[in-house]
Design a protein around this nucleic acid. Structure first.
Lengths: 337, 337
DNA sequence: ACTTCGTCGTGAAACGATTCACATACTTCG
DNA sequence: CGAAGTATGTGAATCGTTTCACGACGAAGT
């Protein structure tokens, strides 16, 4: 059905080897022959078969990016950065979504390994790295994204989440807030745990301040809204005056639930709010949300960079870890009141 | 380097054919042998090579979804729906982003064709379908997504954008608004053109009403903000009292620029606003935004459905077109005032 | 005139899985 | 007991590319 090199070769009156050369090293073929082969390719509508090439090469021209949530603008920006850098190397990025489910993550990893992708960028769901070790043992480089600065065995790009959590909490403390709440979860997600730990540490520095954890099942607008509803009565009862959300989706949801319930809570007057990620929607919320910004596209580009390094890393060298610093972006949700 | 069936076969003391059978039709192999082969697979850490399988099969186990903008929650929801349906068929979805660029679109299509994907779901950038015709002629089924009900030659899933545009405009007219603005672009994007046409038609039904077009280069928050800035002085000068935005990102950006400029415009008091897509952020905007809802996940699932149909379609049968009806979701941005 | 190059091209082997026509060994049936 | 069937396995051929050892041929050097 499909046209192959063999037919192109016949049509152009050359051997298959020559067709392949025209495709891959045209400078080693006489100009006139190149011309003739190109013409045959066009006339027959020949399209190279990537599977065959890949079989021969032992490796595909693609690299995989497996993220926790494609719906989160943070990751789509990371993807954008990765794609830009990868295309400079002639690599295609396969974007996949684990939706924070270990099963989906495992499935995708299986597919990628069978695909013999030339590398995997992954923001892993849980703290179990045995599958990733295995993959790497099979010769596929792995780079942890937005995670794993604590994993000496894998290269990683991340942002210091503990520092980010501390930044958020300290900002609230500076605004005079003392009874803080942390909204986020599940805690098995490393980013969340670290942000919480960082916030806790900052609060601990203040003798008089407290931090209470409100867990969530996922990091979505809807979950934020749910927690917001739960928080609304509690805030006045228990005197909570500051909230750190583990990401902006949660923050937006929480804010909305607080502002528009039957017995609304004023932001920032009654409770101050800080989100995380600084997605563009944070600035467009009802009360624009103070957030922690991360260099998103840079993270993606750096991840690809590390992948290339990994591929050519000598046995002795240690995997590299790049940690970027988060940045506080102050908006109305946390000041005044 | 990599373990192959041959080595597994040797280890288990069987032929390569048997290993393949264990993998693909275990019921035709004696239980004890299956056991032995499975053991060998585990011990050697064998992972099948997808390229080899695919080369033999002539077709990959993946299908491609090429969207205009992965940053737009509309498309990530479509992707979710497609993925769910595809995984029922044992197919993987490759998600790619054309970012509304014809070049990027062409690049991705090339890669997919070389990959011999088992089908392509695409929301095309421009009205040029010759490349897609070519791909289909080469035996790869194509389904247009969110576009192309007017293209008899391709199967398609879409939502009636003209009806949606009309719905939005008519709603504003019913609220007593008469001098309307349409924000969106570029008009070469079919969805935008249709929504504008629908809105124009609805306005034309009212003798006294007018509709003015404000073009954009892309459909993003930032572009919306830019147009909003431009609109702010104009609104009072020219008496514009209603705005239809071609999507919610634009609407959110416009709203924000109107509300927070140096000389703010009240929404909906001075100007009423309707967006399009009903992304979750629309409900969480400063003034929650009235929008046009589309059955997003259903669109993705239906697209995969049509792809399967296409793959087995007889020569005589015509490609199928599914058109869903959009729905108006009223929020504060358009009522009262 | 003879070697030595360089240029251009050839065609078979290899990559790893699947398939299929063909064995082999047991049952079962008449 | 022989024929026919069933269950289980075999291994060579195949998919489409790339690679590589090897010609063929004319130009240049001695």
């Amino acid at each position: 059905m499909s046209v192959s090199v063999r037919e192109v070769a016949a049509r152009a009156g050359v051997s298959v080897g020559t067709v392949s050369n025209v495709l891959n090293r045209p400078d080693q073929v006489k100009a006139e022959t190149v011309e003739r082969v190109r013409a045959a390719i066009d006339e027959l509508g020949y399209v190279p078969n990537a599977a065959a090439r890949q079989l021969r090469a032992g490796r595909s021209q693609s690299l995989a990016l497996l993220v926790l949530d494609v719906g989160n603008p943070f990751f789509t920006d990371v993807a954008r950065g990765a794609e830009a850098r990868a295309s400079q190397e002639g690599l295609t990025v396969l974007l996949a979504n684990s939706d924070e489910s270990p099963e989906r993550e495992a499935n995708h990893l299986d597919v990628f390994e069978r695909q013999r992708v030339s590398g995997i960028l992954v923001s892993p769901v849980e703290g179990d790295y045995t599958r990733l070790e295995e993959i790497r043992k099979h010769g596929i480089p792995v780079v942890l994204v937005d995670r794993g600065a604590d994993q000496p065995r894998f290269a990683s790009v991340s942002v210091d989440d503990a520092a980010g959590g501390a930044l958020a909490a300290r900002h609230l403390l500076e605004q005079g807030r003392r009874r803080l709440a942390f909204v986020g979860g599940p805690l098995r997600i490393g980013q969340v745990a670290d942000r919480f730990a960082g916030a806790s540490a900052a609060v601990a520095e203040h003798g008089s301040a407290t931090l209470q954890l409100f867990g969530t099942d996922e990091m979505s607008l809807d979950e934020g809204r749910r927690v917001g509803e739960a928080l609304r009565p509690l805030i006045r009862e228990t005197g909570i005056d500051g909230i750190v959300a583990a990401n902006d989706l949660l923050a937006i949801g929480v804010e909305r639930a607080l502002l528009f319930g039957p017995d609304p809570i004023r932001v920032p007057d009654e409770v101050a709010l800080v989100g995380y990620d600084d997605i563009s929607f944070a600035a467009s919320a009802v009360v624009p949300i103070t957030s922690i910004r991360q260099p998103r596209e840079l993270i993606g580009a750096t991840a690809v960079e590390l992948l290339l390094e990994e591929a050519s890393r000598a046995k002795g060298d240690r995997p590299r870890h790049v940690v970027y610093a988060p940045e506080l972006v102050v908006r109305e949700s946390s000041v005044g009141g």
